[in-house]
Simulated scan of single mutants.
Amino acid sequence: MTVEAEPLARLRQRTSEKWSAYPDDVFPLFVAETDYPLAPPIAAALHAAIDLGDTGYIGEDDRAKRAFARFARDTWGWEVDPGRTLTTTDVSVVIVESLRMLIEPGDRVVITPPVYPPFYEFIPEAGGVVEEVPLLDDGATWSLDLDGLERAFAAGARAFLLCHPHNPLGLVHPRPTLEAVAALAARYGVAVVSDEIHAPLTHSDASFTPFLSVSEDARTVGVAAHSASKAWNLAGVKCALIVTASEDRAAQLRALPVEVEVRTSHLGRIATEAAFDDGRPWLAGILESVESNRVLLGRLLAEHLPEAHYREPHASYLAWVDFRGLGWGNEPAERILEEARVALVRGLDFGREGAGFARVNIACSPEVLTEAVERMGRLR
């Protein structure tokens, strides 16, 4: 059953970033938070913990890991060993700590812009140096540049930070491409960290393949980052999983400082277990709403901003919109915020390839999305 977004008046009572960063006359379609109500099984689990005063430190408890393993098996046919996983605070920490254990200071780490802006910060935080191999764009779809990746690997890059599904495009990388990446990484001794936080948000017309499931090469070279935070809107409760699929990688996990796991939120683990085990019907409901909104966005742009274009995403609730035909400069989000009072994410934050683009969050009500595009349309 479709899950509908909360009324705008109720949403404006929230105090998270989405609802506190701008004045009330701004429609916030920027940060990756959703406007849907919390999934009832998660709310019940958190309320039960609060009622018990169960708000202490995490204990020796692998229930969240086992819940994720069940979800991965049932959703993607992927067998995850909970004993080869670790929880921590969030996916940014998964990425930074994974890179720290995989590279030496000064090593080059490849990213594929346009890509999630914090990637540019995570790599130097871990001691690495960013190397860009932009995605290929044939005018109809995007894809990883396998030849470009091989050149970077052969020239000495030591790791590849893969975004899968790819933010901001909603691109789900196909299995043959992932197999090719794994083979190249194995050939050149490159580690792959696959950020798969948007995987549960894969749409009904796409099929997500976990990187670690595609081959023995992938299991040897790879580490995956997973969390319930994006799909179930749980960023504030702080729990993510570092997933490995080989004994060598698992041994590296066990050698990490104990605080990497101990800093996991106890409430985050409780919410994560409830999400992966009992939040699946709710997730299916919000995906129906998101898929409806991705079609609606196309219709609204055609009606109100025909010079703007976008390709429907196949994962996540984020849309990558090309405003270049409107002549609004390299950062159209700035004019849209200033004059239309709609907050989007600046395209250039995702790399040079984002000039003239902006990212739109469509995890909102159809009415909010409609009003936002109508406001933008009045700028023509």
Rank of each mutant, 00 (worst) to 15 (best):
H226Y: 15
S229K: 05
W76F: 15
L169G: 00
V262H: 14
P41T: 04
D195V: 02
Y116R: 05
D138E: 14
L102H: 02
N361S: 14
T244A: 15
H309E: 14
A199T: 03
V368T: 12
A21H: 10
G53I: 12
G285H: 05
F27H: 09
V190P: 01
E79G: 07
H304I: 02
E338D: 15
L326V: 08
G139S: 12
E196D: 03
G377V: 06
L11T: 03
R269M: 13
S204K: 14
Y120L: 08
A224C: 10
A355W: 07
R341H: 15
E303R: 15
P306K: 10
V172G: 00
N167D: 15
R70E: 13
L267R: 02
M376Q: 04
R352P: 12
S204Q: 14
H226C: 05
L337E: 10
G139W: 11
V214K: 01
I58C: 11
G170R: 02
P114T: 05
T272D: 04
Y57S: 14
L11S: 08
A224Q: 00
E121C: 05
I336P: 01
L348C: 11
E131I: 05
L296Y: 07
S289M: 04
E291W: 03
R14N: 07
S316Q: 09
L52V: 05
L348Q: 12
L379I: 11
L178K: 00
A333D: 13
H173M: 08
V91P: 02
G354F: 00
A340R: 06
N233T: 10
R341E: 11
I242D: 01
T87Y: 05
S207W: 10
R341G: 06
N167R: 13
E60F: 08
Y120N: 03
D62R: 06
F211K: 00
H164V: 06
A69T: 06
P41N: 07
E247P: 07
R70N: 12
L144T: 02
G77N: 11
M1W: 11
L144R: 01
L337M: 13
V172K: 00
I103H: 06
A126F: 04
Y188M: 10
A251S: 14
C163P: 03
P40Y: 09
D35K: 03
Y57K: 14
P105Y: 04
A275E: 02
L149K: 00
I336A: 07
F208W: 12
V3W: 11
E60A: 15
G354C: 06
G325W: 09
G329T: 08
L11W: 08
R346N: 15
R66S: 12
L99H: 00
V93M: 14
R151S: 14
R10I: 12
P113Q: 11
S215T: 08
E307W: 09
A67W: 02
G189Y: 11
L326H: 13
T88F: 04
R299P: 03
P200T: 01
H164A: 10
A182P: 06
L136F: 12
A39P: 04
S16Y: 14
A39V: 06
R100I: 07
T141E: 13
D322I: 08
H304G: 02
V290C: 08
D90P: 06
P134T: 13
E371V: 05
T141S: 15
